[in-house]
Amino acid sequence: MLSFFDLSHTVDPNEIDSQQHVHNLRYLQWTLWAAGKHSAAIGWDAKEAAAEGLGWVVRQHEITYRAAAFANDELIVRTWVSQIQRYASTRKTLICRPADNAVLAKVQTRWVYVDLRNHKVIEIPDDVREKMAISKTPALPWH
């Protein structure tokens, strides 16, 4: 069971905005990519769940931007599940640039489990809950 997951990402020049750094929405996109890949790595099959009318939906994102990313930066997007409740889970993410030991952003996302057929929040099933390891904040990628 993976207590955390690292997504490696090289900033593409197309991700740079008019202020010559990465646009804020990209940080959110990377966070969602990492969450999806972590979920797949622990055995969550999003396509199968969707075919059954089930899935995760974001209830809240909280992002603290600490430093800018630039074209060609090599990043690590580290994510983990910090809490599971009856209907929701909280996932935390750090977007890091190991070249200078910089934490570029801290993200906290609250996900709810939803019956997609009627758009209702439902209890997280035991088989889904069992695949999710709760983790405290892991060490930074350069430690």
Rank of each mutant, 00 (worst) to 15 (best):
M1I: 07
L2I: 12
F4M: 15
F4V: 08
F5I: 14
D6Y: 10
D6L: 01
S8L: 04
S8P: 00
D12A: 05
P13A: 01
P13Q: 06
N14H: 07
I16C: 02
I16P: 07
D17I: 06
D17P: 07
Q19K: 04
Q19F: 13
Q19G: 05
Q20M: 00
H21G: 01
N24E: 08
N24I: 05
N24A: 12
L25R: 14
R26G: 04
R26C: 10
Y27D: 05
Y27F: 14
Y27M: 04
L28F: 13
W30F: 12
T31D: 11
W33V: 07
A34W: 00
A34V: 10
A35M: 10
A35P: 09
H38K: 10
H38T: 05
H38P: 00
S39I: 03
S39P: 10
A40H: 07
I42K: 03
I42H: 02
W44G: 08
D45A: 06
A46I: 15
A46L: 14
E48N: 07
A49T: 05
A49V: 06
A50Y: 07
A50L: 08
A51L: 06
L54D: 03
L54Q: 13
L54C: 08
W56M: 05
W56K: 07
V57M: 06
Q60S: 08
E62G: 01
T64W: 12
T64I: 13
R66N: 13
A67Y: 12
A67G: 11
A67W: 10
A69Y: 05
A69Q: 10
F70L: 15
N72S: 13
N72Y: 14
D73A: 04
E74V: 09
E74I: 03
E74M: 09
L75I: 05
I76E: 05
R78Y: 07
T79H: 05
T79S: 13
W80Y: 13
W80P: 00
V81I: 15
S82E: 15
S82T: 11
Q83L: 09
I84N: 05
Q85N: 15
R86P: 04
A88E: 14
T90Y: 15
R91S: 12
R91G: 09
R91P: 08
K92P: 02
T93F: 15
L94M: 13
C96S: 09
C96G: 09
C96E: 13
R97C: 12
A99D: 15
A99P: 07
N101A: 14
A102S: 12
V103C: 14
L104M: 03
A105R: 04
A105Q: 11
V107S: 14
Q108Y: 09
Q108A: 07
Q108W: 05
Q108F: 02
R110S: 11
W111M: 06
W111N: 02
W111Q: 04
V112E: 01
V112W: 12
Y113A: 10
V114H: 12
D115A: 03
R117Q: 09
R117V: 05
N118C: 03
N118W: 01
H119Q: 13
H119M: 03
K120T: 07
K120G: 04
K120I: 00
V121D: 01
V121L: 01
V121C: 01
I124G: 05
I124L: 09
P125I: 02
P125H: 03
P125A: 02
R129P: 04
E130W: 00
K136C: 01
A139W: 08
L140D: 10
P141D: 06
P141Q: 08
W142E: 11
H143V: 11
H143E: 14
H143A: 11
